[in-house]
Design a protein around this nucleic acid. Structure first.
Lengths: 174, 174
DNA sequence: AAAATATGTCAACAATGCTGACATACTGGC
DNA sequence: GCCAGTATGTCAGCATTGTTGACATATTTT
């Protein structure tokens, strides 16, 4: 368990309260802003945006992903997904294959250039993460991983962790 | 310094590369999604969005903030800021005061209801952070803080850390 | 008085979310 | 084989939040 939080009595309202971790709230904002901002620069060169990045990333990580699974991961609507997916397919970054067991399904996979772009994007984000971990100290990676997992909503936690693990198993080479 | 990363030789390209920390890349996405998503629910009840949240948050934390400083923090354009700021002012959540030294400046401060909403939002985000820290272990807070600071772009790092510290000093009561 | 600064505003547009309705193709149970 | 359910695509329309560029006003600085 964690150390008991520093507690104060508010002089006006006379209600007990703990000071919110404003530093972390703000660092999360700035860190995320720069984390995705750097990828945005790369994407802009291809005429893509963040939404394209998310789709490309998960298709690269989970080859053979279906539309339904992707919708579930991204939590957006079919309409929003289709707009960006169409761009990626027309641009030759993603291909669709008809499902074998169920021919209604479209199995999404990255093409060679799609894989290359996905890696390029993962590369810049990796570099930033590696630098931050190195600066934070050797033994912080586990702590950070656990913290981030704890930030995920309890309902999705299991699903998210399973997804992350699935990507690890698939490896990058199907 | 951190432990040397596990290095492999790519069998095809014959270039050395390290496996990207896909787990962290994805956890950052899911954690952020849920972190802001919970606040969105509160905001929706007031007819506000994320953009309103950011403005309200920083005005609450840094009372007397000027437009120029806010633009610099949020990295958006005047037009985008003015739209949401107008909503917040008309809704009675933020007030403007004319600068004393320089009468061109508008010093932004939260009203009572603005402060209350800002606290409510900080409250739900705090709770999530506290839970995640508790689950991750007692001594993870420093590690997480350093990691997040390291994720901020090097150019802004000093500025961001100064801002976070300034908020801590201002406290919540000007 | 002129130049620079802080702010506000207008018009137009782009990216990415949303809803609801409807069409097509395929599967699976009976 | 039929029919209900499922997986997907698509259309029209709309909201939020970002962008650019131009121009107006008030105030300060030189």
């Amino acid at each position: 368990m964690s150390a008991p939080a520093l507690q104060r009595l508010d002089p006006v309202r006379q209600t007990s309260h703990v000071e919110a971790p404003y530093d972390l709230i703000e660092l999360i904002f700035f860190a995320y802003r720069d984390f995705v901002g750097e990828a945005d620069l790369v994407l802009a060169a291809y005429g893509f945006g963040r939404a394209h990045h998310r789709v490309l990333h998960f298709v690269d990580r989970l080859p053979g992903l279906t539309i339904a699974e992707l919708l579930d991961i991204l939590r957006i609507t079919k309409q929003s997904l289709n707009r960006v997916l169409r761009d990626l397919i027309e641009g030759g970054f993603i291909e669709q294959r008809t499902g074998v067991a169920d021919r209604r399904r479209r199995l999404l996979v990255t093409t060679r250039s799609g894989e290359a772009l996905a890696r390029e994007l993962a590369g810049v984000q990796s570099a930033r993460i590696a630098k931050a971990l190195a600066e934070a100290g050797v033994d912080t990676r586990m702590a950070v991983t656990r913290f981030l997992a704890g930030m995920v909503g309890e309902g999705d936690r299991a699903h998210v962790l399973e997804l992350v693990a699935r990507g690890r198993i698939n490896g990058s080479h199907l």
